[in-house]
């Protein structure tokens, strides 16, 4: 899974801690999300996208292979 969470978060000027608090997860979860090492549920992906003010498909994308 490719992710652009870090890019959009930096664009919004919010910290990992703040984003974690907004979407109701731990900071470590945001770190894993940004590194693409954790596949979030649709619910969490939706919350993150909403917190960053973009659509889900803009921040999360999957490789076909």
């Amino acid at each position: 899974m490719k992710t652009r969470v870090r890019e959009y978060r930096a664009g919004c000027g919010i910290t990992q801690e703040k984003l974690a608090e907004t979407v109701g997860v731990r900071r470590e979860t945001i770190i894993f999300l940004e590194k693409g090492k954790y596949n979030p549920s649709l619910r969490l992906a939706h919350h993150v996208a909403r917190a960053l003010g973009v659509g889900i498909e803009e921040i999360f994308s999957f490789d076909d292979e």
């Binding site: 731990r26 979860t29 979030p40 969490l44």
Partner: peptide, 8 residues
């Protein structure tokens, strides 16, 4: 208390 999220 720390958050109990889906990953944890």
């Amino acid at each position: 208390l720390p958050v109990m999220d889906e990953r944890v």
